[in-house]
């Protein structure tokens, strides 16, 4: 028995060794490297091995940091609210209102296809809509809603949130749809027989049973938004900042130690948020 167990462990390790190697070399080692470099010093041209706290002191001593972190949370929260509302509605429609399996699969695929195309292109594709002479402005002017072009459509927080919702709603739809499909339909019939109306069924039966899917979607959306640095830069025309941009600006200036310190703080923040969210769901059970 002992021998069998040892044998099992050995085959297990052999099978996962490529995976473990990749994760060690390209996930664990880089994180370790960043935490080491976050204690180094930097001149304008080079970085010098050292053990100083000045990168963190500077980070926590600057009011910019708090503003930028606040902004990051703001983006995450607003994006979450929209992606959840839209994603839940779409998943609910697909799971409970589409009756044939073939249509369900087809419409679901239609929702997921954009996920496999380029994010940058999908960001660029908002330019003709939101620009000063774009479709949105022309339409609003021809309807007489506004007299002159609205300036805040492109290159603003509005554009940033719009792009986030556009890019990431899928990450809500997929896990929520997945959990909804596993809800036993007889539960809903039982609720209806018990006299519940549609809204009551939705609120008291479907919503609680969909919680794991909602949590997984929430984890995806919040981490993607909190770690982002390109969408914010591109859609705000470099006028707004989040933590990711703070890091990428430091990198552009070759200030790697300071970038590393910010990156470590960002990583810890994200992990804390996820740690809280994981208390509500057991991922291994949901696969």
């Amino acid at each position: 028995m002992m021998k069998l167990r040892a044998n099992n462990a050995l085959t297990g390790w052999l099978m996962v060794s490529p995976l473990a190697l990749v994760l060690l070399a390209f996930l664990v080692a880089p994180i370790v490297m960043i935490s080491i470099v976050s204690f180094w010093r930097a001149t304008e041209f080079s970085i010098i091995p050292d053990f100083v706290w000045e990168n963190y002191e500077f980070l926590f001593g600057s009011s910019v940091t708090y503003r930028v972190f606040f902004n990051t949370f703001k983006y995450a929260l607003i994006t979450w609210a929209f992606t959840f509302a839209i994603g839940f509605t779409v998943a609910y429609y697909l799971a409970f209102h589409i009756r044939s399996m073939t249509w369900q699969v087809a419409l679901f695929l239609l929702c997921t296809i954009p996920f496999w195309t380029s994010n940058i292109i999908r960001m660029i594709s908002w330019i003709p809509f939101l620009g000063r002479n774009g479709i949105a402005n022309s339409a609003l002017m021809s309807w007489g809603v506004i007299d002159e072009p609205v300036e805040w459509l492109l290159f603003s927080d509005f554009a940033v949130i719009l792009a986030f919702v556009h890019l990431y709603t899928l990450f809500m739809v997929v896990p929520i749809f997945n959990t909804m499909m596993r809800i036993d339909k007889s539960l809903i019939e039982a609720a209806r027989d018990g006299g519940a109306n549609g809204a009551q069924i939705l609120w008291n039966v479907i919503l609680p049973l969909t919680k794991p899917g909602i949590m997984i979607g929430t984890i995806f959306v919040t981490t993607l938004v909190m770690g982002d640095f390109i969408t914010v830069r591109f859609m705000s025309g470099s006028q707004s900042a989040n933590v990711g941009r703070l890091i990428s600006n430091d990198i552009a200036l070759l200030q790697y130690p300071s970038a590393s310190a910010t990156a470590i703080v960002l990583l810890l923040t994200v992990l804390i948020v996820i740690g809280i969210l994981l208390r509500f769901v057991d991922i291994r059970k949901e696969l």
Binding site: L27, I34, G227
Partner: peptide, 24 residues
Amino acid sequence: ILFYLIITSLVIPSILISLGVGLL
């Protein structure tokens, strides 16, 4: 542990991978 590493790999802000591998 490996399972949590996989999850970390998924949720870690991409810029950390970029920066870390670059530095390494």
